[in-house]
């Protein structure tokens, strides 16, 4: 899994590429949290772009909720965008969109 961040007009876009499972999430956590620390002061909200997520299981739910908590500590709301049909299904069934709305 690869994670890239880009700040555009006070919106932090976090792009996730690849498979989110227990193996890949371990390292990706640190990268994502570093972006939160680095960009928090200059961001109003964060948008996680899931377009290139090719696989996600429930570890992905834990991963996203963990990042949500991290950003909320800085008072920054998180939104999710572009999930695939399969990703959308698991996000929907777990109720993640009640914390991080889909835009």
């Amino acid at each position: 899994m690869q994670i890239r961040a880009q700040l555009n007009d006070r919106i932090l876009y976090v792009e996730i590429d690849g498979e989110i499972d227990q193996h890949s999430a371990t390292r990706a956590r640190q990268t994502a949290d570093r972006y939160a620390d680095d960009y928090a002061m200059r961001s109003e909200k964060a948008v996680f772009d899931l377009q290139n997520v090719s696989f996600m299981d429930s570890t992905g739910i834990g991963f996203l909720i963990g990042r949500y908590k991290k950003f909320m500590r800085y008072g920054i709301p998180v939104y999710l965008t572009n999930p695939s049909t399969a990703t959308d299904r698991i996000l929907q069934m777990s109720g993640v969109y009640t914390l991080m709305p889909k835009i």
């Binding site: 299981d57 429930s58 739910i61 834990g62 991963f63 909720i65 069934m93 777990s94």
Partner: peptide, 14 residues
């Protein structure tokens, strides 16, 4: 404490 969603069995069943 380890960011586990606790949803594994629920996902399998669904």
């Amino acid at each position: 404490g380890e960011e586990r969603s606790g949803m594994g069995f629920t996902v399998m069943q669904t």
